[in-house]
Design a protein around this nucleic acid. Structure first.
Lengths: 116, 116
DNA sequence: TTGAGATACCTTGACAGGCGAGGTATCTTG
DNA sequence: CAAGATACCTCGCCTGTCAAGGTATCTCAA
């Protein structure tokens, strides 16, 4: 079974920005990269992915342009912007903070789930 | 500034179950416990809290009963059920898995956010 | 005594992100 | 020529969060 999407929610944008920070890419490839990176444990649904692109572009975090493929289906490439890099950095920090916080909140016993 | 709630989303139920695993409690106190535990960095909004109680009770993870306060405002106490404990255990495991997954996805470089 | 502030509960309606379901078009390969 | 991969996209529902509003009790100071 795959991971509950509510646990990933809020990370979608960061994941995409992280991948684009390595280099320009396009939707289909980003999606595959995620599936591959997690050995199929997680995948972004297409609808989610394209919603995120829209959102990130509106926010000025990414730019897009059509690739000039000679053959094959057309691809819309995305590039991260300076603002995108900044947002990405911030998100990493936030994630670390949230991570510590959640870990603290989730285990009132300190150790594991065994209360008694 | 407090943590983005999208990062905590999906953990609300687990946090509540974790607290109830220690012992019965009621809404107001649970809320304060969370604020205190995080030094005010995070707090559950009341609406969110009561929605969660409803959800958890419908799912059979908690039971509720009215306290018999002699004075002061009436309190509705919540108790975790066996099913609740089981769900809690599972959630802890899921969180660990998700944690690893997100950490992997969020940093395509392996180290930190610095791509170049 | 009256008013503020803490304790304690609750509901309504809006919003945002995820995603199931559906659609388009191209290329490759059997 | 059909199937499957590549590649894009939209519509509408669902779910969790939360701002805003409400109720009632108790305490304590002015």
């Amino acid at each position: 079974m795959s991971i509950a999407s509510d646990l990933i929610r809020g990370h979608t944008d960061t994941i995409i920005l992280g991948l684009l920070a390595v280099g320009d890419s396009y939707g289909y490839r980003i999606n595959k990269a995620i599936r591959t990176a997690t050995d199929g444990e997680y995948e972004l649904k297409e609808a989610t992915l394209y919603t995120a692109f829209r959102r990130l572009e509106d926010a000025g975090c990414i730019r897009s342009y059509w690739g000039d493929e000679e053959s094959g289906a057309r691809r819309r490439y995305y590039a991260i912007t300076d603002r995108g890099r900044e947002v990405y950095r911030q998100s990493l920090l936030e994630w670390e903070r949230a991570n510590r916080l959640i870990d603290k909140l989730i285990r009132p016993f300190g150790e594991n789930g065994e209360g008694k």
